[in-house]
Design a protein around this nucleic acid. Structure first.
Lengths: 161, 161
DNA sequence: ATTATAATTTAGGTAAACCTAAAAATTTAT
DNA sequence: ATAAATTTTTAGGTTTACCTAAATTATAAT
């Protein structure tokens, strides 16, 4: 896996903390597939920088500062994942990609994407153009669709009868 | 800046090569804001791995293998940038984000995004829902729009008269 | 054709994110 | 309550992507 960022660690601690209260070296090590000794070093660094409270042999908890980063990172992750899922990307892949993109994406871009997801989610079964996009993705054909005469639309026509 | 990948170097060499034929240490060093001595090392590595032909003191050119990576990376970049621009993101930011995302994104995701951009670009001034999205982004309001009665739509109504 | 200047390379160094192996502390089982 | 097993930490690598300073090569100016 790619080199991990502070955001990776803090986000993961946040997720584990919501299950178990205290987060231990081994949890992180196995989740990120690195050596427990490395996690100790990371704990020391994150603690120095004020993201976690760390007591030797006794696990860690996020500070306010850490929690703030964790929440914002997780929010980014969820939005990205939702966005990718809207496009029709497989959930597993959406998750993996979200995990990477969340660390590099600009905040203005995130804002737009967030609004985009909101925009799309306002429609109960998604907006009709999404169906057309998926049809286009699968067949390469774009078809016009007049909402007053859906029968003629190969995408929406069949839904109606 | 973040640590650079092989893709970064190869893509940049490709872009510079299309201007100047031979690409030199200093070009890359100033473009990526690193030390020319580091570029020499990078040239040696890229050369060993078969991405470039490198002759001491005489610049580099991409091999077939290198060109292939460069082209595919640049294509990813362009698609991502187009996509972000469609959402209304400022060109500068779109460029920076594309530059980062291009190195981490899954190929299936890229395929979907490519199709999505194609899908949108089929409409001469973009599909009407894009206008609605932008309106939503700015005002927070989603308005229904019946294409047979556009006058009633605050987004499309004014365009018509 | 020298010499001065600029570009490139070499040699050796630093910092960070990992690692392994062994020591220390904690927990579990009897 | 002690021994055994497990977890965590420490100490001391390794690798990689950079760096600086000095040496080398190439280029430009007289």
């Amino acid at each position: 896996m790619r080199k991990k960022t502070i955001e990776d660690y803090v986000e993961l601690i946040y997720i584990l903390q919501n299950k178990d209260e205290k987060v231990h070296t081994n949890n992180i090590a196995s989740a990120l597939d690195i050596n427990p000794a490395s996690v100790t070093e990371i704990f020391q660094k994150l603690s120095e920088e004020g993201y976690i409270d760390y007591e030797k042999y006794n696990g860690v908890t996020l500070t306010q500062k850490g929690k703030k980063i964790a929440i914002s990172t997780k929010k980014k992750h969820d939005t990205l994942k939702n966005f990718l899922t809207i496009l029709g990307i497989d959930e597993k892949i959406a998750n993996v990609d979200a995990c990477k993109i969340e660390h590099v994406v600009n905040s203005e871009t995130m804002e737009r994407l967030t609004k985009f997801v909101e925009f799309v989610q306002q429609f109960k079964d998604g907006p009709r153009w999404i169906d057309h996009f998926k049809y286009f993705y699968e067949t390469g054909e774009y078809v016009e669709c007049n909402p007053l005469n859906e029968k003629k639309c190969p995408v929406h026509g069949s839904k109606q009868q």
